[in-house]
Each structure stands twice: as C-alpha cells, then as structure tokens.
Amino acid sequence: MLLDIQNVEAGYGSAPPVLRGLSLQVEDNRSYCVIGPNGAGKSTLLKTIVGILRPRRGTIRFQGESIEGLRPDEILQKGICFVPQDRSLFPEMTVQENLRMGGFLIRDRRLLRERLDRVYELFPILRDRTNQVAGTLSGGQQQMLALARTLMIEPKLLCVDEPSLGLAPGIVDQVFETLTEFRKQGMTVLLVEQNAVRGLSWADWGFVLDLGALRFEGPADGILENPQIRELYLGRLAARGEE
C-alpha cells in the first residue's frame, strides 16, 4: 500500500474540522479521482497529505512510514508532490527558474540538468519559452508548466487539485493526456476534480467524499454507473460534465 490514511481530522485555524475522521487507502501504480460536493474536504485532504495542514488527529502512512506532522519539504522528499488549484507557479520567475524550483531538492547538478532536458523533451513548448516569465504564459501553458515541474523530482505520488479549473475544453484534454503520460511513467495520481464525469472516466478508482469523510469508494466506472451515487453526489456535477 502506498498511502494509508486513518481517522484523520484536519481543518483551518481554530475553525471546526473539515475532515472528520477520514480514512482511505491508495495503492501503488493506480489513478484515483476524488469527487464530492463543495466543502466536502477534497482540497483539504490533499493539503493534509502534503503537509500544508497538520492533522489534528489520526495517522497518515506513506510506504509504511508515518508522515503526519512532517513539513511540506520533508513530505516532498519522501516522494509526494502537490499541484494546487492555483498551480503553485512563481509568476515572477521564468519558466526555467520555475522548473528549477520543481527540482529544488535535487543536489546533484548533473541529475538536475538531465531532468530539465527530459522535461523539455516532453514539453517542447516550455523549451521555446524557457526565459519567459511564467505569469505571462496562457492558462493552459501554466498548467502544463505546473505539471511538468513535478517531473523534476519524479514523485511516487502526485496529488493534483482541479487541474481543469478555468481551462478551455481542448486544453483540458491536453491536461488529462499529460496525466495519462505520468501514469505510464509509473506515477500514482490522486486527482481532485469538480468535473466528476471527466475525472472518473479518466481514473481507475473513485473516492466519494462528503462532510469530511469517505462515503463511498470503488472502480471509477462503477461509480459513474451507480444510480444512488449519481443521484446523491453526481446530480448537477454529472449533468455539467456531460454538457
């Protein structure tokens, strides 16, 4: 098992917890999609896994090792990478500097150089814009850069929060193709997606979150076809996804 979350309670400041005793397991080399209504705790779940939020209770184990309470940089070192909703780019830095930030943990210069070359090979558009300031890229290019950046450290688990947010449908296709490419490279992807139909039809396995706890899990296509889930959680979302 890659990631084992048990009874985690987490939230912001002194506010009531958003995650209320959430437990879920992530297996190696699979793709997951987390769905659920607004406020279900999807983003909070990812932030807790990667150490931006410290769980108030419960355990998080990554490859058998307890990681709850570690700093984000320590968790990244263990092999969990996070692409947040706002894409985590440094808008005032160039494309290349952003990629170097992605590989910040790499001490070996030659390895850094190799990874940079590989990223540029996979994303030629980024090579063309290597000295362009990231904030001036288009939304799609920025999302590509944010995803490409994670390749710099070759994480075992990639947590992506709503990569399709604010992107044109054609660009969304590109984003999902990129995620498929990452899966082929052996990365496990944990995806949070508002566009439930889109996310579930891409992923192997689905998690349904509501009110800070796991309500349902199963093969992604099964969730899409489960009438109860559809009615409870996919209603409006599914309709939107099928437009």
Partner: peptide, 13 residues
C-alpha cells in the same frame, strides 16, 4: 521563491 509565496516555496521543498 519564498519572497513571492511562502506556502508555494515550502511545497517546492
């Protein structure tokens, strides 16, 4: 990086 955004810098390692 941390001057621009501390959380992002932390997440970057």
């Amino acid at each position: 990086a941390l001057a621009q955004d501390e959380t992002k810098a932390e997440v970057a390692g």
